[in-house]
């Protein structure tokens, strides 16, 4: 009542309008917001066909962009691998190296041999050494005109003279059927007085004349002593991941040149 009197007390028409607005504005606001919502809904329904089309276009764009990103990531990885191989090539200027790509793998489950895309046409010879930026891969076992087969370090046919830089021990790294599945090989012919330990790096010794000295083979995972204690051998985690070797460098060894 107090409010009514106060309103009536001033300019009457203005007061009446003010009164009406005061009373109705919250309700108007409520209804307008509902109306906007309902209007927006009907507008959405009306344009649903357009949204569907736009959505499809946007999805296609996203798919295309994701595909581009995947390709770029693949190129980036390839670039990193090739850069690492180039650095390796530059760090061994004394060796004549040629870059090759792995094109095929052994068709069975027993052996670890793969085929590369260069052969006699790039002067690759039998027993040339194959490496990646991570370490030793193996050696060339057969050469064709434009292909060569590489026996991996983990294949049972492989045997490499090894050196342990920490202890200066000389040993032999052989492929082993049971270890090859895990990308490992066996380090044997180690003196029982040797202080081998897990984590020791294993390199090529250069003895035997096939492999040059100082190429990383891997690291010792575990040292196993026989029951009597006269001899021991070690399991070596190879530096190279043989499941994912794609690019390699072949060192064209001078001693393999045909005289």
């Amino acid at each position: 009542m107090g409010i009514s009197f106060a309103l009536v007390g001033g300019n009457s028409s203005l007061t009446g309008t003010n009164f009406a607005e005061v009373i109705t504005s919250p309700v108007q606001g409520f209804f307008t917001s509902i109306g906007n919502g309902v209007g927006g809904f009907f507008e959405f329904i009306g344009q649903a066909g357009n949204y569907k089309e736009e959505n499809k276009v946007l999805r296609d764009e996203v798919d295309a962009k994701e595909q581009t990103i995947r390709e770029l990531e693949s190129y980036q990885q390839e670039n990193q691998r090739l850069r690492a191989l180039l650095e390796l090539k530059e760090s061994y200027p004394q060796y004549d190296m040629v870059g090759c790509e792995v094109i095929a793998k052994e068709p069975g489950n027993w052996f670890h041999v793969f085929t590369i895309d260069k052969g006699k046409n790039y002067n690759i010879k039998k027993d040339d050494v194959v490496v990646t930026h991570k370490g030793l891969v193996g050696r060339v076992s057969q050469v064709g005109e434009n292909w060569a087969k590489v026996v991996s370090l983990i294949d049972t046919e492989s045997s490499v003279g090894a050196l342990l830089p920490r202890t200066q021990d000389i040993a032999i790294v052989d492929g082993d059927l049971a270890l090859s599945g895990n990308g490992q090989c066996r380090l044997s012919a180690v003196s029982n007085t040797s202080a081998l330990a897990a984590g020791d790096e294993v390199e090529t010794s250069g003895l035997g004349g096939v492999y040059p000295k100082g190429l990383l083979i891997g690291t010792i995972k575990e040292v196993i002593n026989d029951a009597v204690g006269y001899s021991s051998y070690a399991i070596v985690d190879t530096a190279v991941d043989f499941e994912h070797v794609r690019e390699v460098l072949v060192i064209r060894m001078p001693q393999n040149e045909i005289p």
């Binding site: 095929a104 052994e106 068709p107 052996f111 041999v113 076992s141 294949d155 046919e157």
Partner: peptide
Amino acid sequence: LILDFYGAR
């Protein structure tokens, strides 16, 4: 023969 040609041994 194919298995042998592509094979390791």
